[in-house]
Design a binder for these strands. Structure first.
Lengths: 221, 221
DNA sequence: TTCTACGATCAAAATCCTGTTCATGTAAAA
DNA sequence: TTTTACATGAACAGGATTTTGATCGTAGAA
């Protein structure tokens, strides 16, 4: 779940934003001054929605304290192009002028989160010669590329991402359910089987291990 | 993704810098001498982190070869104010003395990149013979000009600007939505198709690669 | 040992995606 | 006005992927 920090001194607007964003499934934190906003940076928000006119500290000042990989959307009554250019230069990814349409705001929040997620979620997970690059969305085994389908990739990523923990079949089912809500666990079995087949074409090491009655785990002996 | 060139002869320090910067999502290149640093200028770094005491060529000498719009941060044991003024005059945007705090260094790197990016909004992105000049708004393939429409250009720029990352279809849709808010992903498909067609007129290399169920990526084999 | 429930695999069927082409609408250029 | 270039949506073909159902193998319990 994504965490959004709202820095807004107007109680009404803040409350509306909070309610709407919670409705969309975000976790929301609120601050009413620049100073309190700065303190809440410690809680690692994934996105910041910020008014530029704040008591205590200007939005611009607050901006300079924010790590550049957190997307910031500025909300302001001001709308001169100069302001806009200036802010975008300082690390804001977007800019909305009041009064705003809540639907548009939500769309921009979603877009900003999407790009930042793919940018910083670009991690390389690895386990014994098996490398999953979550940004490039590709996998290599002992240096050789492994061509996986979407589901196979998702399963492998889940397995490799959970550090040796056993993943229950129902967890894997949830992964697949996103696309097809009604499916039995027999598809999971097939995907696992196909994954193993592709792995076997490259190495003899057994990577995917079944744990009876529980699920699967990565652990090539 | 931003590319950072580290010119540092101390192996330990260089390795730490590289690791930390990669962790932050930068693409890192290393050089251990001034001379090799100079060669790597050809790889178009977005920022240079440079030790001033180098074998082969002094940092000051190297500085004079660097294009003035690339931000350079000097890292040095020396700390006299004269040195500092001198260097800043020669085009360094910042100056850090050893021993430095890695967090501070990262913050300065981020800040320097942010300002330089907004200053010269134009940047030449390139990938295997494909060059996108965001300033001049034109594209060349193996030296030959590629005449693209506005949308095709936007798509290609997004793909090339994201360093091999997969761009989801919804991200591409957002790009098009700016002009026509209601459009289906079938237009994305058509644009991609047209782009490929134009590329194919010049070379046989496959540049735009589909990642099934996810989106598209640049990656000519 | 024998039984049962679960795991593995296969091939066919169903579904989903991509790459094209074509007809249409629209806005700018001549 | 006419012409041209672009963007879009519909429709379809050709694949790729996913699911299903049947079948066989195997671990664990009685």
């Amino acid at each position: 779940m994504n965490r959004i920090l709202i820095v807004e001194d107007d109680e009404d607007i803040g409350a509306v934003l909070e309610k709407e964003l919670i409705k969309d499934g975000y976790e929301v934190m609120r601050a009413v001054t620049g100073t309190s906003g700065r303190m809440m940076l410690g809680k690692n928000p994934d996105l910041i929605l910020m008014d530029l006119m704040l008591p205590g500290m200007t939005g611009e000042e607050l901006l300079s304290h924010i790590s550049p990989d957190i997307p910031v959307i500025a909300v302001s009554a001001r709308s001169s192009t100069d302001d806009k250019v200036d802010l975008l230069g300082r690390g804001c990814v977007d800019y909305i002028t009041k009064p705003f349409d809540i639907k548009e705001l939500k769309a921009r929040v979603a877009a900003a989160l999407r790009t930042s997620e793919s940018k910083r979620g670009s991690k390389v997970l690895s386990y014994k010669g098996l490398c999953v690059d979550t940004g490039k969305h590709d996998v290599t085994l002992d240096g050789k590329p492994l061509k996986l389908t979407r589901t196979e990739y998702a399963i492998l990523k889940m397995l490799i991402g959970s550090g040796g923990r056993v993943i229950s079949k129902s967890e894997l089912l949830d992964l697949i359910k996103d696309e097809t809500p009604d499916c039995t666990d027999s598809s999971v079995k097939v995907h696992i089987s196909n994954l193993r087949k592709k792995i076997k074409e490259i190495t003899d090491t057994e990577y995917i291990e079944a744990v009876w009655g529980i699920g699967f785990r990565l652990g090539g002996e």
